[in-house]
Amino acid sequence: MAGTRRTRRRWLIPVAVVVVVVIAALVVYVSPLLHVRSVEVEGTHNLTADEVRDASGVQEGQNLARLDTSAAASGVSRLPWTDSVTVSRSWPSTVRIDVTEHEAVGVLDDGGDPAVVDADGRLFLRGVTPDGVKKITARADDQGAVSAAAGALAAVRQLDQGLYDQVESADAPGANDVLLKFPEGREVYWGSADRAADKAEATRVVLTREGARWNVSNPGLPSVRE
């Protein structure tokens, strides 16, 4: 009899475990308590929360456990302003979408439709001109020049938004030939975008001095440009 009881216990325990797992799975995949009730969107400035929700394809009432977060993120990533996106579950009923947008620093003027350029020199949006961004004059097919001009503008804005606001344009006929133009005909020649933070600081300093044309290609020794 004792042996029979032990035998029953041996097979009853795994059966009980299986039953518990099945019940738990049914609760997760069927229970209305784990359906999507809200979709929270964070990190947007140019995109609206509704645009992000629509692009994600997430609908209220979907089962949260079966939600394809990769597909939702892929949908949002196709929005032009999206640089990166993460979609996650927040149990029991919330989907969270965290968006990082491109940092628009310039609009490329290459004779065609305006193309918005981010801080890394990537062209991510055409046909619009966002408020406050600066004109970049360069060839669209010269990625080095576009990136150099964008890097210069990004460094200036990171240092001093007021200084960035004064920039009229960034001209870049080549990657090593960036020129920032300011009101009243003032110009600051950067050369390349190497040591961008130092050159941004040098730009801020020389614009407090007399002189219309400056060279900060060596930011430790800025000079009047002939």
Rank of each mutant, 00 (worst) to 15 (best):
Asp113Thr: 13
Ala154Val: 07
Ser169Tyr: 04
Thr129Phe: 02
Val117Pro: 08
Arg157Cys: 03
Gln161Lys: 15
Ala115Tyr: 04
Pro114Lys: 01
Ser147Thr: 13
Pro114Tyr: 05
Arg139Cys: 01
Lys134Phe: 02
Lys134Cys: 03
Ala150Leu: 04
Gly127Ile: 07
Phe124Arg: 01
Gly106Tyr: 12
Val156Gln: 07
Tyr164Asp: 01
Val156Ile: 15
Ala149Arg: 08
Ala152Lys: 06
Asp171Ser: 15
Gly121Arg: 06
Ala115Gln: 09
Ala115Arg: 08
Asp131Asn: 11
Gly106Ala: 15
Val107Asn: 01
Val107Thr: 09
Ala170Ile: 02
Ala119Leu: 03
Lys134Val: 02
Gly144Ile: 10
Gln158Ala: 14
Glu168Ile: 13
Asp109Val: 14
Gly127Lys: 06
Leu108His: 07
Arg126Gln: 14
Ala145Cys: 11
Gly144Cys: 09
Gly106Ser: 14
Val116Cys: 04
Leu153Asn: 06
Arg139Phe: 08
Ala154Ile: 06
Gln143Pro: 00
Val133Met: 06
Arg126Phe: 08
Lys135Leu: 12
Gly112Val: 13
Lys135His: 10
Asp141Cys: 00
Gln166Ile: 09
Val156Leu: 06
Asp131His: 10
Ala152Gln: 10
Asp110Leu: 11
Ile136Pro: 02
Val117Phe: 00
Val156Asp: 03
Ile136Arg: 07
Tyr164Gln: 10
Val107Glu: 07
Ala148Val: 05
Asp109Phe: 14
Asp113Val: 10
Gly112Gln: 14
Asp141Asn: 06
Thr137Ala: 13
Val128Thr: 15
Ala115Val: 11
Glu168Ser: 14
Thr137Asp: 13
Ala155Asp: 04
Leu163Ser: 03
Ala138Glu: 05
Arg122Thr: 14
Tyr164Ser: 04
Lys135Ile: 13
Ala152Cys: 15
Tyr164Val: 08
Gln158Trp: 00
Arg122Gln: 13
Thr129Asp: 04
Asp118Phe: 06
Asp160Tyr: 03
Gly151Gln: 02
Ala155Ile: 01
Val116Asp: 03
Val156Ser: 08
Ala154Cys: 05
Tyr164Leu: 06
Ala148Lys: 02
Asp118Val: 06
Ser147Met: 03
Gly162Pro: 04
Gln166Val: 09
Leu123Ser: 12
Ala140Asp: 04
Gly151Phe: 03
Pro130Ala: 02
Gln161Phe: 14
Val146Phe: 09
Lys135Tyr: 10
Arg157Leu: 05
Arg122Asn: 12
Gln161His: 15
Gln158Pro: 06
Asp171Met: 13
Ala138Met: 10
Leu125Trp: 11
Val167Met: 05
Gly121Asn: 00
Arg139Glu: 11
Val156Ala: 00
Leu108Tyr: 05
Ala148Thr: 06
Arg126Ala: 12
Leu159Gln: 11
Ala150Met: 00
Gln143Cys: 04
Ala152Gly: 15
Ser147Ile: 02
Val128Glu: 15
Asp109Ala: 15
Ala150Glu: 00
Ser147Glu: 09
Val117Asp: 04
Gly162Ser: 14
Leu159Asn: 09
Leu153Ala: 08
Val133Glu: 07
Ile136Tyr: 09
Ala119Phe: 00
Val107Tyr: 11
Leu123Pro: 03
Leu153Val: 01
Ala170Trp: 01
Glu168Pro: 05
Leu123Arg: 13
Val146Tyr: 07
Ala140Asn: 01
Asp171Val: 15
Ala138Asn: 02
Gly151Thr: 03
Asp113Cys: 00
Arg139Asn: 12
Gly112Leu: 12
Phe124Ala: 07
Gln143Met: 02
Asp109Tyr: 14
Ala138Ile: 07
Asp113Trp: 11
